[in-house]
Design a protein around this nucleic acid. Structure first.
Length: 468
RNA sequence: GCGGCUGUAGCUCAGCUGGAUAGAGCAACAGGCUACGAACCUGUAGGCCGGGAGUUCGAAUCUCUCCAGCCGCACCA
């Protein structure tokens, strides 16, 4: 079987793009499926670092991609404000406050030691000058509350500056206080999936595919992280989501089997849950690694990096590799305008088209608002057809990317489209003073290519500048 | 030891629900602006797709095995 499409078939794509505009390429893969994407969800114990930035870019763009593919998407940040790490944060700030007041202190190994902890301690002392005279518990709670709120505000600001949106900020503490965890325990017990041993409450996840059973309530009576996580996910489905996607750091991959067991235990199917793993980001400066450990306080923050290289370059870098592979993020490289840093290549294609359209207007060759198939008849060269084919199958790329939960496919498509465009530009003069028909046809073609570039870049959360 | 991921051109990476001569950028070399923006384009060179075995008409892609690297394997989060 050998089918050849006529040029008119491909030319029709330009009209389709003109018509659909910013929704050209949208597909209905999701069919309105209620979907939740949860991502970042970093403990509010310090500023976001570059690794969180990758998760933020991937999660945010995945949400944008799925919406474009017909899913009904809600985005969420889970605030772990109920665990041991948070008590340590309060304690760390409290100790620093003592130090600020002149006491000699000894900060234990596990505690948070970044300079921001001391800053927070000073702020707490300004607001509550007598905090250290209160009983230790009370004082530490005040330190914790202030520190968490302050850090969370910073995280929200950083994400906002990175064009990353979370529609819902969900508190673990609120979840626990609502009794959801107890309800989940009761539900699991009813299904005979729990048992007591060594004074602890266990969840028989091995019956659901895990390699060992897991503790829900420790022998000291406190809950494990897993316990509230089950309740949290149960609750997600009760809120009406049919499809739950978690974006996790790849070092948590070992957590997947027990989470799948939990999903199954709350009565859901395997296809109702998916995990997107984010591999490590190696931050480099001139090829040399920069270490980043929040605990030790030597991290490079997301805000610093974004300030250095810009939102567009940072997001594109994160979204041009599959999230599952480790990524070298070289600050010098991401500032360069070479194809090692292809964001400029794609943006330049868009700016170039805009420049041609501007120039055409200057020469009195304004494109009519509505064009017809007849106007496009001159688009018959191999380069015309190559460009038309590229934009025509944009929706296939969206479909494939959404199916794979992988926005990097969109980045690669855009690089290819930009390449074909640049090649076209070098070969064909668009504005021909003595041939208005060819000029109109090519201007229309380029305008539609620009539209597709914008639509793709919008999914990545990268701007499409008219000039550069 | 068990499990997950990774191994494709000198470098950084696509391609992996099997399909024709394996792609891109960078680096190297040779070219291209007296009409629309050279942050660009054209060309040359560069690969037993980690090794081996298997399934198949057909394997970078699927299966097994070995090697190498990274990450996990808590009554931590």
């Amino acid at each position: 079987l050998n089918v050849t499409f006529t040029p008119a078939f491909w030319q029709q794509t330009v009209l389709d793009i003109e018509q659909a505009a910013e929704s050209f390429g949208a597909v209905n893969l999701g069919a309105g499926r209620k979907t939740q994407v949860e991502y970042v969800s970093a403990n509010p114990t310090g500023p976001l670092h570059i690794g969180h930035g990758r998760g933020a870019a991937v999660g945010d763009s995945l949400a944008r991609l799925l919406r474009f593919a017909g899913f009904d998407v809600s985005t969420e940040y889970y605030i772990n404000d109920a665990g041991r790490q948070m008590r340590l944060l309060g304690f760390s700030v409290w100790l620093r406050a003592k130090e600020v007041k002149g006491e000699t202190i000894d900060i234990p190994k596990d505690f948070y030691r970044g300079v921001y902890i001391t800053d927070l301690a000073r702020e707490v002392l300004n607001l509550h000058p007598h905090v250290l005279e209160l009983p230790d518990d009370e004082g530490q709670n005040i330190c914790f509350d202030y520190a968490m709120q302050s850090i969370l505000k910073g995280i929200q600001q950083d994400l906002n500056d990175f064009r990353v949106e979370h529609q819902v900020w969900y508190s673990e503490k609120t979840l626990v206080d609502s009794g959801a965890v107890d309800r989940t325990f009761a539900s699991l017990k009813k299904r005979a999936l729990t048992y007591e041993q060594d004074n602890a409450l266990w969840f028989a996840t091995t019956t659901l595919g895990d390699d060992k059973d897991r503790v829900l309530k420790k022998s000291d009576g406190t809950l494990t992280y897993f316990a509230s996580d089950i309740a949290y996910h149960d609750e997600k489905y009760q809120r009406g989501f049919d499809f739950v996607i978690d974006v996790w750091g790849a070092d948590h991959h070992g957590y997947i089997p027990r989470m799948r067991a939990a999903i199954s235990a709350v009565g859901r199917q395997a296809e109702d849950f998916d995990v997107v793993l984010i591999q490590l980001v190696n931050l480099l400066a001139d090829g040399k690694p920069i270490s980043m450990s929040t605990r030790a306080g030597t991290f490079e923050t997301l805000a610093d990096v974004v300030k250095e290289v810009g939102v567009d370059a940072a997001r594109f870098m994160f979204l041009s590799r599959k999230s599952d592979s480790p990524l070298d993020f070289d600050l010098e490289l991401v500032k360069q305008r070479t194809m090692d840093n292809p964001v400029y290549y794609v943006q330049y294609a868009h700016a170039r088209i805009c420049a041609v359209l501007r120039r055409a207007v200057e020469r009195g060759l304004k494109l009519p608002d509505t064009i017809t198939l007849a106007d496009l008849a001159p688009l018959t060269t191999p380069e015309d057809l190559a460009l038309l084919r590229m934009v025509e199958h944009f929706d296939d790329e969206i479909h494939a990317a959404a199916s794979a939960l992988a926005a990097h496919h969109v980045s690669h498509y855009l690089m290819e489209l930009a390449s074909v465009l640049h090649s076209y530009y070098a070969k064909h003069q668009v504005i021909q003073n003595d041939d208005p028909q060819v000029t109109i046809a090519r201007l229309a073609l380029l305008r539609s290519v620009a539209q597709v570039l914008r639509n793709g870049l919008a999914i990545l959360g990268v701007s499409a500048p008219d000039t550069m």
